[in-house]
Design a binder for these strands. Structure first.
Lengths: 344, 344
DNA sequence: GACAGTTGTGCAACCGCTTGCATTAATTGC
DNA sequence: GCAATTAATGCAAGCGGTTGCACAACTGTC
């Protein structure tokens, strides 16, 4: 069926090992022989079988990339950055989606394990214990999670949440709702922890609503809860939820930001296109994708490194946040910073 | 390093072939032996190496799925549907993004070729000749393209474009612009062909602008061209471009739909969230993903089938289209159909 | 109790490729 | 001019599995 190394060897009148070497160690073969082999290979349409090669070398030149939901606009920029970074090192990325399902995450990692040199686990929902176990079966890099002994790339959402809450309290908000993300999300726990501390320090009450599915619908369905709780400002786990929430608030007759201010997290493309434009915490997704690939390539072999990369987040103030009922701070960031501008 | 079939055989005191059979042909091994082997396998944490198995069986239980741009919201629903359909048949999907680059498409197909049972090529940008050549190296199913001898799933965008143009001419539009998609897109050619015919039949002039990159920016940058051309209505290659165009038109001071009507294609989630909500041609992306997987599984082995699946599209009328300057038809679809409703 | 069937397991070749070692021919040093 | 290198290629084992075939050891039959 497919043309193998044997066909090329036969056509060129050499041993298969010579053909093998023309491709993987050209300097070991006589230039004349090499070009003859290459010519025959070309003519027969021979392509080395990477899977067979991997069996012996242990290197596949593939990297697995697992995300919870490919339809969440947060992921594509990360994926694309990882792909282009991998390509620079002659690797290919295989993406898999797990539908926010921890069980599927495990299954997919195992399916990928022997076909890739390592797996990038982005915003995993499974338990630390399971991740540690899997990391014994295949080199892992986690993104948006911190686990001792496992290389990680984390975006500083804690600081992002702090900045967001400070922005809201400075605007005079005293009852702030936090829309939690999915169960199992490390990011969601970080945000919650940081937001709680910051709210307390700023004299505001934080009302926690969730966990919720990290989608528009997740935000839409809790709009009533937000209004019922009497919150005048909301920090959502991500932009998708924030956008859904705004839809829900508007549908319920509330104005944004006049009645309720809304802050998202991620700064997905979409957040610039909705009305009002969304105030949000920008996360460096592309940088995270690149860093994760680099980290895997660097630490793939050594198990249990503690290599961590921290990436900064930035608050982007747009049109979905405004004055609250309480006294607002003299250094109101809403005045100090241009609309659509960036503050850290 | 990793535990292999030999380790399990040694631990269980049987030959490796018996271990192999406990996994791939359980009925051939004595129940007692089987459970003993399974126990040892479990205890050692043995996982069969799918790549090694594939070498001999020729089946990887993997499917490649190649898209032009994972960040385009058109693709994720298709990908997710394909993944869940594949999972039903115990297959896994590997997604790869090609950045709208035909050369990368070829490279990725070849990289995937031996590691998958077949490749789903969604909206490919490369030439027919190249696709035909690749289909000799690995089973292929193309989506949104028709090539003789290659199994295909096509969405009827021609009919969608016709319905969209009829909608516009019925509203009284006589100068309609068509924003073309990327070079190499079969869909774009189909739309153009169908829109031209329909516009002529409806007594309208069709102004073709493009090719353009199929993104928001692609739409945004041609907003001025649209105004300069004096078009009162626009059919865009996809929703992303339509949304970008609307942004551009609003920025230039034109009102949508009062001054210019805009119709997109795809009905991505986003088109329901922008203001005004987008009138668009809904394409059955999830169905296409499922159909493509089914088709590959059914026809993977036989080369050169002519199996084709056609899927219908539907015009969804929302808020971005309105009356044009000309006489509008008495059976104005804008009156006949409820907002947000669906017509075919 | 000999015979034909079953059933369960082992043997060994093989999938497509890499690689350490042996072999041979050509080149170099003195 | 001969030993010692060096360069180019072949040989064969092996990566982690699968599978056709042979071989026992049972089972049941008459």
């Amino acid at each position: 069926m497919a043309v193998t190394i044997r066909d090329v060897a036969r056509a060129s009148g050499v041993h298969i090992s010579t053909v093998s070497r023309t491709f993987s160690a050209p300097h070991l073969v006589n230039p004349n022989t090499r070009s003859r082999v290459l010519a025959h290979a070309e003519q027969l349409g021979y392509r080395p079988n990477r899977a067979a090669r991997a069996l012996i070398t242990g290197r596949t030149y593939n990297i697995g990339l697992i995300v919870a939901d490919i339809a969440n606009p947060f992921f594509p920029p990360l994926i694309k950055a990882a792909e282009s970074q991998a390509r620079k090192h002659d690797h290919h990325i295989f993406v898999a989606d797990t539908n926010e399902d921890p069980a599927l995450e495990e299954e997919v990692v195992r399916a990928l394990a022997k076909q890739v040199d390592g797996v990038l686990l982005v915003s995993p929902r499974m338990s630390n214990a399971l991740i540690e176990q899997l990391s014994r079966e295949v080199p892992l890099v986690v993104v948006n999670r911190q686990i001792a002994g496992i290389p990680a790339v984390v975006m500083d959402v804690a600081r992002g949440a702090r900045t967001a809450i400070e922005h809201l309290t400075a605007l005079g908000h005293r009852r702030v709702a936090l829309l939690g993300g999915p169960r199992g999300s490390w990011t969601s726990r970080e945000i919650r922890r940081s937001a709680s501390t910051t709210a307390r320090a700023g004299g505001a009450e934080l009302i926690i609503i969730g966990p919720n599915p990290p989608t528009e619908v997740g935000g839409l369905t809790v709009a009533e809860d937000v209004l019922r709780a009497g919150a005048t400002a909301v920090l959502a786990y991500n932009d998708l939820m924030a956008i859904g929430l705004i839809e829900g608030l508007l549908a319920a007759g509330a104005r944004v930001p006049t009645d309720v201010s809304v802050v998202g997290i991620d700064d997905i493309m979409l957040s610039r296109l909705t009305r009002p434009k969304l105030t949000t915490v920008a996360t460096p997704t592309a940088a995270a994708g690149r860093a994760a690939v680099d980290m895997l390539l660097a630490h793939g072999d050594d198990r249990r490194t503690n290599a961590h990369i921290h990436l900064q987040t930035e608050l982007v103030i747009r049109d979905s946040t405004g004055r609250g009922p309480g006294p607002h701070s003299p250094a109101d960031p809403g005045d100090a910073i241009a609309h659509g501008g960036v503050a850290s």
